[in-house]
Design a protein around this nucleic acid. Sequence first.
DNA 1: CGAGTTGTACGGCACTGCCGAACACAAGGG
DNA 2: CCCTTGTGTTCGGCAGTGCCGTACAACTCG
Lengths: 279, 279
Amino acid sequence: MSTDTGHDQSKSKTSAEPRDRYTVGSVARALTVLDTVAAAPDEGISVSEIARALGTSKSTAFSLVRTLVHRGFLREVLPGPRYHLGMALVRLGDQANRGFPLGRVCEPVLLQLSRDTGLTTRAAISDQGYPIFIARVDSPGAIRFHTALGVRELPHTSSAGKAILSQMSRGDLEALIAETGLPRRTRKTITTLADLELDLEATRRRGYAIDDEEDVEGIFCIAAHFVDRTGKVTGAVSATGIKLDQSSRQIEELGQAVQRAAEAVSALVSDSGRRGMML
Amino acid sequence: MSTDTGHDQSKSKTSAEPRDRYTVGSVARALTVLDTVAAAPDEGISVSEIARALGTSKSTAFSLVRTLVHRGFLREVLPGPRYHLGMALVRLGDQANRGFPLGRVCEPVLLQLSRDTGLTTRAAISDQGYPIFIARVDSPGAIRFHTALGVRELPHTSSAGKAILSQMSRGDLEALIAETGLPRRTRKTITTLADLELDLEATRRRGYAIDDEEDVEGIFCIAAHFVDRTGKVTGAVSATGIKLDQSSRQIEELGQAVQRAAEAVSALVSDSGRRGMML
DNA sequence: CGAGTTGTACGGCACTGCCGAACACAAGGG
DNA sequence: CCCTTGTGTTCGGCAGTGCCGTACAACTCG
């Protein structure tokens, strides 16, 4: 997840290590605290555990946590005390979302698509080929599986990713895959470049991408890419549901609905195009 | 501390103010940067402006910004460069939301209520009497007005606030109002304690609270409180729309729908009550 | 053109953030 | 019952580091 310097937890050697070019150490540590708490289980995490995770002393971790709590970025939940992410992050996260025009543009389309299909719908932007979901509309029954916002997903195991990949040039595709590899997530995950290209070809033919339990067992997704007014692929719209609920004929209909939604997004993006671009 | 270089720092009192007890200064500054960027207009904000806002030197602000960008908490948007809130905040904000069980519990109820009414629906928790919205389902046509998550709203100008206030004891109410006052937001805002108590009495009678352009001109809301299994008021559900769209008879129906939704939340909260409480 | 911005880079002082030690408290296990 | 080993929290003190000032490039405005 966090790029993090990782190995530099060696406290204060000498000045041999140029120490990440001009960044503030204690701030970086504080951000790592946030990531650590985010990665913690639902019951929260204690100061000692945080200290161990950062490789700092308890007292240092305590100071950082104090500061973050004081400002609402963490919240104390007793007894323990243990810590959760705080209200300030909810606030800033919501704000940050608004900063991506795409999110606002997609929202009504996703809502409509969710109503039409009864599924959870999401929109992702393409971050150098990787999908990052930035908007989501949950279906009423979708409490089972959690889908996070703001994280870079794998391109080859998500339908949104494959929708994006399907529009890339051969060279870019190979470069991207060389970088990430094709890690297996389920027994149905595509793990060879040849299979992937076959799938992408099929995707191009039918106009939408299918993820049939390739990322999570029992979950399937359908996605279609959308473009800005210059024709560049900027992201994808996806619908997600439980495998068992779908018949193969429905998939066809779903695919077309998703495709129409993606086209709607493309149109809306072009409209609001004269203003600042997405991302 | 040493010679008085402190031109602007309010902490100029040397040791009088022991400087917020045991918090890390540079981290606090970094968090202030985030708040500053969040408060910035849509075009973003520059390093110099940030520096001025914090009262630090440009170079210091630059270091902080660098660190935050490096970790994805801010993003550079050229030219300028100017800065926006970054992806990491979207990620953590989404995570933080999950940390409030209430949000997850309310989501389906809000969704249903939004479908039934065609309005934007929200759920707030009560933070010592102040409503903080932590979940929201936008109506398709609700792109006009923005409703933020995670911020403490005024209790007397929001329907959710009044729904909560209506269940408080007289003493607590007066203490709360003494603290916050009754600042005017529109010409319809309730600005006297007597009027407020009248309104709260009416709220108790009818079972739901109405905000009739008391917070924002042209906007009206309806809200009902919900309780945990001990009967304590933990928050409120609200529906928000444009004033002109509603007739007075519809308001009656809306009120009942909102009330039913709030009761549904109360029931759900009680069910999942054996686990950690909300907030 | 100069006078005002802006963003970025670097050296050096002293302040502040970090550590370790020490504390109170709680939970087990002899 | 103590003793041990965990917590969370406080504090003094050293030195590392974060802050400021300065400097310079690029850019805009008159």
